[in-house]
Amino acid sequence: MEMTQAILLTVATAATPLLIAAMGELVVERSGVLNLGVEGMMVMGAVTAFVVAQMTGSAWLGMVAAILAGAAFSLLFGFLTLTLVTNQVASGLALTILGLGVSAMIGESYVGLPGIRMEPIHIPGLSQLPLVGQFLFGQDPIFYLSILLTVGVSWFLFRTRAGLTLRAIGDNPGSAHALGAHVVRIRYLAVLFGGACAGLAGAQLSLVYVPQWVENMTAGRGWIALALVVFASWRPWRVLAGAYLFGAVTIGQLHAQALGLGLPSQFLSALPYLATILVLVLISRNRRSTMINTPASLGKPFVPDR
């Protein structure tokens, strides 16, 4: 296998869960809701995928179950913040803590078992093409889902009427409501979508990335996904770029070590986070362009007046 393609594949595997989770959160935030519980929903997805795959022997069923589990778990957040209008930051954090605890409990008896891998697809001929064959035609199904998701979300948000409504709700729920939009209902749907995506991202971790279950196996990826949404100024294709950039820095630091550059490994390990901060600063420096894309009512609760 050519080295560039091998590295590209490794980066893709590292970037895919970030991309999926961030894409879900992007839709949530576009509707004006800030859900900091991505990490919790993701880890629930990871444990569900693993357990269901173990029980049924099918990675596909595991994946579907993870999507459902992520969505179901996000409903808890939706009920709190949308129906009971609680503080979104606090509710999101509670969701993360709860998710880490519950998943560790569910998965306790599944630690240390070899998992069921979701096999990469294989198209005779195309997969063996030089340079890009395997990258384009020989990856796991979730990779393709992540790309489809990016295309789909981009199309939905900017090319459909429903997408326009969603964005309007995120910017000004009051007027959207006055114009007849179901603010709370649409936000619920957005939150569910975000949960489903986070669940899928978790499934990628325990079915593709490392087919095994250990508690806390998301290891902060949910938070990185949140950072990516801001990084991308709420635009789907930039989320894709950001996820791959972050994946590249993460993998790059390991390569730098293997090459024996002699830098302290702690510094290299911290590099992805420092890079994220730097990029966030660069992106948000331009106040006006961020303002245009930021959902104006992000994080603010909405109660229809009666």
Binding site: V230, I277, L280, R285
Partner: peptide, 14 residues
């Protein structure tokens, strides 16, 4: 720079 403090403060933890 108008940078989101939730994310920067969190990254600085790592």
């Amino acid at each position: 720079f108008n940078t989101n403090e939730i994310l920067t403060s969190l990254m600085l933890v790592y």
